[in-house]
């Protein structure tokens, strides 16, 4: 109930700003995931896939 009240009190402009902030944060996290993956491959090389069974 309290949550609904909070959402109702946001103006459309505030909602838009919050949405863009959330999207930017999601994008940043996505970039970090890709970055860590690419750096891991770059540092370890293709050998990262060849593990003794």
């Amino acid at each position: 109930m309290a949550d609904r009240k909070r959402h109702q009190s946001l103006t459309p402009e505030e909602q838009k700003r919050r949405r863009t902030r959330s999207l930017a944060l999601a994008l940043t996290l996505g970039v970090l995931v890709v970055l860590f993956y690419v750096v891991t491959i770059a540092k370890l090389g293709p050998g990262v896939l060849q593990r003794p069974m």
Partner: peptide, 13 residues
């Protein structure tokens, strides 16, 4: 409700 909510846009950050 709005006191704890950021008013900044992505460009402000």
């Amino acid at each position: 409700a709005t006191a704890g909510l950021s008013q900044g846009d992505v460009s402000d950050f």
